[in-house]
Amino acid sequence: MLERKQLKGRAQVTFVLPEDTPAGPLRLAGDPDHRSPTAHPLQPRGTRTHAPDVSVPTCNSHTFRYLAAGDYWFNDAQADHHDGTNNLIHT
């Protein structure tokens, strides 16, 4: 699930995944962090989910994917669009 909050000239996007989907440490990689799989670890929240907050420019599209243990890359079914490999979010 993607939660969005509009800020002045930027959007704050929270990438939310259930705590056990998939098991193990989770990371977010995409345009906002130049695809660095270490920039945004998904931290457990009290609601049995993982979620980092990322601030991105508005009026733009951004690609992202999730990385789990064992070099397992996966997509977000709730993304605005999929381009074959990546998820896209429009802000």
Rank of each mutant, 00 (worst) to 15 (best):
M1W: 07
E3T: 09
R4L: 10
R4N: 02
Q6T: 15
Q6W: 01
Q6H: 10
L7T: 14
L7W: 11
K8G: 03
K8P: 03
A11K: 07
A11L: 04
A11F: 11
Q12V: 05
V13T: 07
V13R: 05
V13C: 06
T14P: 00
T14I: 04
F15K: 06
F15A: 06
V16H: 00
V16D: 04
V16P: 00
L17P: 01
D20W: 09
T21R: 05
P22F: 12
P22C: 08
P22S: 10
A23T: 15
P25K: 11
P25H: 01
L26F: 02
L28G: 08
L28A: 04
D31F: 05
D31E: 11
D31I: 03
P32S: 12
R35I: 03
R35S: 14
S36E: 14
P37W: 09
A39G: 08
A39S: 15
H40F: 15
Q43N: 04
P44C: 01
R45L: 06
G46E: 13
G46N: 10
T47H: 03
T47W: 08
T47A: 07
T49Q: 15
T49F: 04
T49E: 13
A51N: 02
A51C: 02
D53F: 00
V54M: 10
P57Y: 14
T58A: 12
C59W: 07
N60I: 02
N60P: 00
S61P: 00
S61A: 12
H62L: 12
H62P: 00
H62T: 14
T63R: 13
T63V: 11
F64Q: 06
F64K: 05
R65W: 10
Y66V: 06
Y66Q: 08
L67M: 11
A69V: 14
G70K: 11
D71R: 12
D71N: 15
D71C: 01
D71E: 15
D71F: 01
W73M: 08
W73C: 05
W73G: 03
D76R: 04
D76Y: 01
Q78S: 15
Q78D: 14
A79Y: 09
A79E: 13
H82G: 04
D83M: 08
G84V: 07
G84H: 09
T85I: 14
N86D: 14
N87Q: 08
N87S: 10
I89C: 02
H90L: 05
H90I: 12
H90Q: 11
T91M: 05
T91Q: 08
T91A: 05
T91I: 09
T91S: 10
T91P: 13
